[in-house]
Amino acid sequence: MAKKKPKLAVWKFASCDGCQLSLLDCEDELLALAEEIEIANFPEASRAFIKGPYDLSLVEGSITTPHDAERIHKIRRSSKFLVTIGACATAGGIQALRNFKDVNEFISIVYANPSYIDTLQKSTAIADHVRVDFELRGCPINKAQLLEVISAYLNKRKPVTPAHSVCMDCKRKGIVCVMVSKGDPCLGPVTHAGCDALCPSYNRGCFGCYGPKEIPNTSALSKEFKRLGKTNEEIKLAFRSFNGYAEPFRKESEAHEE
C-alpha cells in the first residue's frame, strides 16, 4: 500500500515573502520534498489549492489587520502542526516598528483616503494569537534550517536549531571577533544562532536578524556598546530592527529612549 503523504500548506500574513521564497530556493531538494509531502497550498509556487486539514502548516508574516487576526485561527484549526517562519511571524517583523508609535498618525499622513484603511494598532507575532508548535527564526530564515525543520518533522525527530549565541558559530568558524579586535558593536552575544555567523564572516557586527537567544543579557551588551562610544540613540536603534518587538530587544531599546 502506498503510504499517504502528509499535507503541507504555506500561509502568508504581513510579510515580504522572503521566507517562503527560501522554500522555493531549495531547488535541489524541492523534488525530493515533493516526493515525501503533498504541497497543498503554496501560492508563491502554484495556484493549486487542496482543502484542509493540513498536517504541517508553515506560517509567514505577522498579524496586522482584524481580518488576519481571524484568519490565523481558521488556519490553526485546520493544521495539526503549525510552524512559524521568520522574524515577522515570530516577533512582529520590521513592521512592528509602528508599535512604538501611533499608527493613526501614519495613516493620516500616508493615505489619501484614510477611511479605507482597516488596521490594528500593533503588528504582532503569530504566537500572540494562536498556539504555535515550533518557531523558526531569522530575517530571512536560513533555507538549510527550513529543510532541517521539515526533515525533522517527516522523520519524527527534534529539529537541530540551537538557541545559543551567534558567537558560538562565529568562534567555531575561526572568525576573529570584530567587537574585540576592532571595537565594532556586534549583537552576536545576545542573538539566536542560525545564520552561521554571516555578518562577522564578512567582518562586520551582527544585526540581530535571528532575534534574542536564550537568556540574553542585553543590558550588559548595551553597557559595552556605551564603552565603545555608542550613544543611547544608536543603542536604541541597534535593538529596534527586524526583531525589535521581541520582548528582550523591545525592553532594551525602550531603556535607551531619551
Binding site: 549565541s165 568562534k171 552575544p189 536564550e214 543579557n217 550588559a220 553597557k223
Partner: peptide, 9 residues
Amino acid sequence: ANRCLSCAN
C-alpha cells in the same frame, strides 16, 4: 552574572 553574556566565547 550581571555582566556575563553567556555567549560562550
